Simulated assay, not measured.
Amino acid sequence: MVKVLASYQEEIANQEIPSGKKKVLLAGLKLFSKKGFHATTTAEIAHEAGVSEGTIYKYFKSKDDLLAKLLSPMLTEIKDNFFVQLDDYHDLTKLISFLVEDRIQFLLINFDFLKLFIQELLTDNKIIDLIKTEVTGKNGVFAYFDDLKKRFGEINSDLTSIQLLRIFISPIFTYVVQVKVFGINSQDKNADLALIKKQIYLGLTA
């Protein structure tokens, strides 16, 4: 069974936090992903959540703080919890198969978060700095990819960490955009996924 985090909305809804805080988080995610962070006002968030603006500031120091509270847990899931699951795989083709199926489902389910993440990545230096830490830091994504080359002898040792990242991300991201942005659903999903897995394997081992 592919392990996929439930949609972020469901995760927030299931958290044991005050009702007002929960409503603000859900409203913030919806409006930020729809309109963009800078175009969304706290008044609009309060209206969407059915609370007063004062409720927002009761739980969050600022709109920036609300955004950080939305992004941080998901970044942790993507980097830490997901990579822990990959450690269970000792066959490269099985690892790739799990990664492709899990991440595609994760991104399709949490597409609102993905839009928000990309929007802020393109416009907010603070988010860029946060991503750099998660990717290039001591325990970041690059460090994991370096370990991946040591674990699997089939992977071309000449590939750099950023090249490995591109090989994994590009076909997965393109497929998600195909489905969620352009509304092009595959006539044969299994064949599409098999092709993506093959592309990644050939890219890693070329």
Rank of each mutant, 00 (worst) to 15 (best):
K3D: 10
L5F: 14
A6F: 13
S7I: 05
Q9K: 14
Q9V: 12
I12S: 05
I17H: 10
S19F: 12
K22H: 04
A27P: 10
G28Y: 02
K30Q: 08
F32G: 00
S33H: 03
K35P: 06
G36L: 07
F37N: 01
H38R: 15
T40Y: 03
T41H: 05
E44D: 06
I45S: 01
H47S: 14
G50Q: 07
T55V: 03
Y57F: 08
K58A: 14
F60P: 02
K63S: 04
D65S: 15
L71N: 09
M74L: 13
L75V: 11
E77Q: 13
N81E: 09
F83T: 11
D88I: 04
L92C: 05
T93R: 15
I96K: 00
L99M: 10
E101N: 15
D102L: 03
L107G: 01
I109R: 10
L114I: 05
L114H: 02
Q119T: 06
T123E: 04
T123Y: 01
T123S: 01
N125A: 15
K126S: 11
I127R: 07
D129P: 00
L130S: 09
Y144W: 07
G153H: 13
G153W: 11
S157T: 10
D158P: 03
D158V: 11
L159T: 03
T160L: 07
S161K: 02
P171F: 04
V176N: 00
V177K: 02
V179I: 08
K180R: 11
K180I: 02
V181Y: 06
V181P: 01
N185Y: 03
Q187S: 15
D188Y: 10
D188N: 14
N190Q: 14
A191I: 09
L193S: 02
L193T: 02
A194G: 08
I200Y: 00
A206M: 12
